[in-house]
Amino acid sequence: MPALFLNILKLIFLGLVYLFLWQIARSIGAHVGPGQRSKQTKVADELTVIRSETMAGQTVRIGAGIVIGRSDEANFIIDDTYASDFHARIGQQQDKVLLTDLGSTNGTYVNGRRITVPTSLGKGDTVQIGKTIFEVR
């Protein structure tokens, strides 16, 4: 009886270790490798910085939703003195990607126009926050 019990305990321990590693291995694949270019999705799901002094080329995934701003608390911290601490939020709603200005000082621009209401984004749109310009991809 103790031998059987110890064997079961041993297998439970190993099983838990593998369960743990599986949880990590499952989601790590998407994060290893150079880029998103290979992943072609229909819905716009990321922003790439196309004009900035220090951040050009950086990419941010929209995922369930992100807040862009200068604050350390923002999901995507933007190095731009013309941006507000919490400047704008981008989130998914049904199958739309919505951009909302969070009462920023200098405003948020989509394709050059300042937005006043939550605005739907599509691939190829440009978003300007402060002096930084993103492209939706």
């Binding site: 790590i28 290893v32 150079p34 880029g35 080329g57 950086q58």
Partner: peptide, 11 residues
């Protein structure tokens, strides 16, 4: 893999 992934993604 995670470490090199970070290196590849950093500009």
């Amino acid at each position: 893999a995670a470490g090199f992934g970070i290196a590849l993604r950093t500009r």
